[in-house]
Amino acid sequence: MSNMSKEVESFTDWLRDSAQVLHDNAAYLTELDSAIGDADHGANMDRGFGAVVAVLDETSFDTVDELLKKAGMTLVSKVGGASGPLYGTFFLRFGTALAGVKLTPAAIGEGLRAGVGGILARGKAEIGDKTMYDAWGPALDAYDTAVAGGGDLAAALTAAAEASAKGRDATVPLEARKGRASYLGERSVGHQDPGATSTTLLLESAARTLA
């Protein structure tokens, strides 16, 4: 039981740290979104994760899966934009996948994949569509490769965060094919995708806090 609460504690740290990072980067994310979207991604993520922190302040959780599912539901209700159902679904499915399992690096990797599966089911994106999946896809692969090579959670999350950052940077020359940015067509070229950017912030935060 004490182990469990230590895990709850580190996942709580991750959510709080992510909220802080998203808050600090809200203006930056909104600026990215204003170039190719409706200029609300930073404000939406800040509002959503701010609400998650408020929940963390009020509620204590026995298990990681309850914690993540509650975070997911909060994001679904509070973010407002498309990233609400997307990140919300991610945390809901991530949480569901972790219910009752031992939190080994491999299990967490499967959980992440389940969460990202939810993002794909929701958003129907593919690699190269200039979406957050351009960061998630390479991150999952890098994570699995690290775990298969015997790496611990810290190594796997670090590898995932680095791959995510590369994926994020690779969105710059792409033409958007999903979401509001796709209305811009060619004019979306040359801008970094805000969703891939916030994904990278979340994974970098995970690498700092979860291991």
Binding site: D40, N44, R47, M73, V76, S77, K78, V79, G80, G81, G84, P85, G88
Partner: peptide, 13 residues
């Protein structure tokens, strides 16, 4: 809307 003036959608709502 997230409320009467904030744009957004809420799956729970």
């Amino acid at each position: 809307g997230l409320d009467e003036t904030t744009f957004g959608t809420d799956a729970v709502a």
